[in-house]
Computed example of a mutant assay.
Amino acid sequence: MPQSATTGYSLLQRFLHWAVALLVFFNLLFPDGMNAWRHIVRRGDTPSAADISAANIHAYLGIAILILAVLRLFLRSFHGVPAHSAEEPKVFQVAARIAHGALYLLIFAMPLSGMAAYYFGVDLAGSIHAGILKAILWTLIGAHIAGALVHQFYWQTNALRRMTIG
């Protein structure tokens, strides 16, 4: 479905956006359980039940992010997304498409690399997951938030409204 097929996001699209955002922020801000588990295992020690539980929370939320992201893409393919506003210069429209594509890519790559490390013992995947992918994700989140604020306060579009109250 073309991007201009709709004028707003559905309630389910908005819910999935904010659910994924909250879960991503939680896992980015509170990875301590997974980090502790990883260090214990790398030393060759046996993690405690509490260490495993804390790591599982991080892992299960990552799996939830992956499932919700699949649902988001499925819904997006049927419902579409609103067109870019006329106030937004073409170069920023292209940048927004690239940034959104990269965000989706990372929303898939982060859980998959984390699962490769945690469940299959691929240490390189864990290093990439906790290193470069995490740094790129933080950068893209910052750009996404900055873009939303530019829309709201500089171009004065309804982009924030479309993703909050509809």
Rank of each mutant, 00 (worst) to 15 (best):
M1W: 06
P2M: 11
Q3A: 12
A5M: 07
T6R: 10
G8Y: 04
Y9N: 01
S10W: 03
L12C: 10
L16R: 04
L16Y: 01
L16F: 09
H17T: 02
H17R: 06
W18T: 08
A21L: 15
A21M: 13
A21W: 04
A21V: 11
L22A: 15
L23I: 05
V24Y: 00
F25P: 00
N27H: 00
L29E: 09
D32K: 09
G33S: 05
M34F: 07
M34G: 01
N35F: 14
N35H: 10
W37I: 07
R38C: 02
R38D: 08
R38G: 06
R38P: 00
H39F: 11
V41H: 05
R42M: 13
R43Q: 11
R43V: 00
D45R: 12
P47C: 02
P47G: 01
A50W: 04
D51Y: 04
S53R: 06
S53V: 02
A54V: 02
N56E: 13
I57K: 05
I57R: 04
L61D: 03
I63F: 09
I63Y: 11
A64S: 08
L66Q: 03
L66D: 01
I67S: 08
V70K: 04
V70A: 12
L71N: 03
L73D: 06
F74I: 12
F74M: 12
R76E: 09
R76Q: 08
R76Y: 08
H79W: 13
H79P: 01
V81N: 12
H84P: 04
H84L: 06
A86L: 08
E87Q: 15
E88P: 05
P89R: 03
P89C: 02
V91Q: 10
V91W: 14
F92D: 05
F92I: 06
V94T: 11
A95Q: 05
A96D: 07
R97W: 11
R97K: 15
I98S: 02
I98M: 07
A99D: 10
A99Y: 09
H100G: 00
G101L: 13
G101R: 10
G101F: 09
G101N: 13
A102G: 10
L105D: 02
L105T: 03
L105F: 14
L106P: 00
F108P: 01
A109L: 15
M110H: 12
P111T: 06
S113C: 09
M115P: 03
A116K: 00
A116D: 03
Y119C: 10
Y119Q: 11
F120D: 05
V122R: 00
L124I: 15
L124V: 12
L124G: 07
A125K: 07
A125D: 01
S127P: 03
I128V: 14
H129W: 05
A130R: 07
G131W: 11
L133S: 08
I136M: 04
I136K: 02
L137N: 00
L137K: 01
W138D: 10
T139E: 11
G142F: 12
A143T: 10
H144T: 07
I145C: 02
I145N: 02
G147Q: 08
L149Q: 09
V150D: 01
V150L: 15
V150I: 15
V150W: 04
H151Y: 02
W155S: 08
Q156F: 10
N158L: 01
N158G: 04
N158S: 12
A159T: 12
R162V: 03
M163Y: 07
T164G: 01
T164Y: 00
